[in-house]
Amino acid sequence: MKTVIELVVALVILVGVYLLTQRIVIWRLQRTCNRVLRDLRAKGAVAPESAVPLPYARKDLIRIGVRDYRPKAVEILLYQGKIAMNDDGAYYLSRSMTAEEPIG
């Protein structure tokens, strides 16, 4: 019986650690999305004509150091329609984001 309790406690701890790490990843992605939006707003990229290239929009094949969430954040923002990409591959804020208040 003691072994079963130890196994259940270990399983609960394992699931808890997994959920905590997923929550941290989501938090970091949200923070990075806000940074990308602030970056585009600061550069004045509010229309296709004023779009700016984002050097961090592409994933590097070889990257040494901590995980970079910026390429994934750009992908998420494109999917959500908060930013758009012009024909040249430069990014700008979509119309819905230019009318909103500052990101903060």
Rank of each mutant, 00 (worst) to 15 (best):
L37G: 02
I83K: 01
Y56N: 05
C33Q: 13
R23K: 10
R70C: 09
L61V: 14
R38M: 11
L14M: 06
V15W: 02
Y92A: 08
Y69P: 10
W27D: 06
V15P: 06
A51G: 07
R95H: 09
T98I: 09
L14N: 01
V46E: 07
L61W: 15
V36A: 07
V17G: 04
P53N: 13
L7H: 10
P102R: 07
A57F: 01
A99W: 04
E6D: 06
I76L: 13
L20E: 06
V8K: 15
E6W: 02
L77N: 03
T32W: 01
I64E: 15
D88W: 04
A51P: 05
K2D: 15
L19P: 02
L11M: 13
E75H: 11
M97Y: 00
I76G: 04
R67I: 12
V8L: 11
Q30E: 12
Y92T: 04
L40S: 01
G65K: 12
L77Y: 00
I64S: 08
A99M: 09
I83E: 01
K59L: 14
D60I: 14
I83H: 00
V25T: 11
P53E: 10
I5A: 10
Y69E: 14
L77T: 07
G16A: 08
L29F: 00
Y18R: 12
G65F: 02
T32A: 06
A90H: 03
K43R: 15
V17H: 02
L14V: 02
E49Q: 05
K2P: 06
P55F: 05
K59S: 15
A90K: 05
D60F: 08
M97K: 01
E100F: 05
D68C: 11
T32H: 02
L93P: 04
P55Q: 10
T32P: 01
L77S: 03
P55D: 14
D87I: 06
L11C: 12
R67N: 07
R31V: 11
K43A: 15
A10V: 10
V25P: 08
K43P: 04
R23E: 12
L93R: 09
V36I: 14
L11H: 11
A45W: 04
V25N: 14
M97A: 12
I5F: 02
L7T: 14
L77P: 09
R41F: 01
D87H: 03
I64R: 13
M85Q: 15
V15L: 15
N86R: 07
V8N: 07
V12C: 13
I62A: 10
D87M: 04
